[in-house]
Design a binder for these strands. Sequence first.
RNA 1: GCGUCGGUGGCGGAGUGGUCAAUCGCACUUGACUGUAAAUCAAGCGCCUUCGGGCUUCGUUGGUUCGAAUCCAACCCGGCGCA
Length: 404
Amino acid sequence: MSAITFTIETEHGPGTARAGVVHTPHGSFQTPAFCVVGTKGTVKGIEPADLKALGVEVALANTYHLFLQPGERVVKEMGGLHDFMNWQGPLVTDSGGFQVFSLGAGFGKKVSKFAMPEAEVREDTAPAVYDAEIASVHGRLAQVDDEGVSFTSHIDGTLHRFTPERSVEIQHKLGADIFFAFDECTSPEETRDYQQEAMDRTHRWAERSLAAHRTNLDAQTKQAIFGIVQGGRYPDLRRESARIIGEMGFDGFGIGGSFSKKDLGEALSSAIAPLPREKPRHLLGIGEPEDLFEGVQHGIDMFDCVLPTRLGRTGTLFTRGGKIDIRKAEYANDTHPFSDIPAFEGYTRGYLNHLFRANEMLGPLLASMHNIYFIQSLIHRIRASVVSGTFDDYRAEFFAAYAR
RNA sequence: GCGUCGGUGGCGGAGUGGUCAAUCGCACUUGACUGUAAAUCAAGCGCCUUCGGGCUUCGUUGGUUCGAAUCCAACCCGGCGCA
């Protein structure tokens, strides 16, 4: 029924750390897994072969970005996203829901009353609900209504519209092994009333996404669909969201939203408890080392995060002692190797410092690779500790050295 | 030697009587980055500060003026042209 299978290898009880394997049409990956992010069909600066060498098993790309450029039709004609980006391993696509948040939706209560009747909701070319005046006043590119989201392209300003059905259609064309239902990601700043409203909307969108997926039998044999749990920082809403999404028959689940650090643990336990144990859980967009431990502890199976590449590209390296900014003057004459990657043995911190200061492209690339390797090694060790029952010990050992 | 143009904060380079401690870029310092509008962005960058402000700066010295980086004179230094 599902295009993927999830095998749990180790699990000590509900809502606790577990280890397993996800099998997809493009190979399998071990869980807990860290998906490296390649938003536009490329992990910025890194070749797929290098990703493999760094320990990457699964990558995540973005529907919103690929829809805008080059367009899902091009990707499909080029053989689907795997062939297009020359990555033959497991692939995940995010639905574009997060862009609704990051491009500035959430102020759209005002526009929800302008919601279009379903019959009039057209494809991306019919952004009928979009109110450019409101958007420009708020400096925002996207507006939510009950049917979907209207937005202007950040690339060329053209107007588009996503609905759950449209997002699924695009993701079918992209062809990732796992894709997410279209959701609304809210800001933790929003009121409880709005969190509830957005959550209810996300649930309706989840039903519609699932229904749209069920109409495409071919896609169902090749792609799995994950539903997304929302609810902001309110444990009762999280539980309700997880219960409702959990009963819908998705192949797995994403836990979405943007929460403050201190809410993470509670949000996770509320969101995970009601979910069916046998299906994988993906914590969306999370990736600091402390968050990986926190997620795994509560039973998260998958993560994705831009942090290794973004931080690497901008000069911050993960190290056993914590993060360091390699551009700082103090590293200019540092003869220590900057990375544990065996193939990088001859590269010193001083050299990397120079590459960044001189604005040489090799700097961001080496740093990105290092950070990917660091996080992949970390998640592999975490997994090993779960399997051997020494998770708590490993966590303590890690943070004895790592400064948060 | 004569003529001419020019000497501004680490560098480049604005500014040609008050709104100038002096636009801007670079360099430098610090900070941020969690489903990537990010190889990006923000702040600082003469000295002191009880953060109100105070003090010393625009080659040097002297002058004009209520007031000068801006006008005048001499000198020092540099480019170019002519000898």
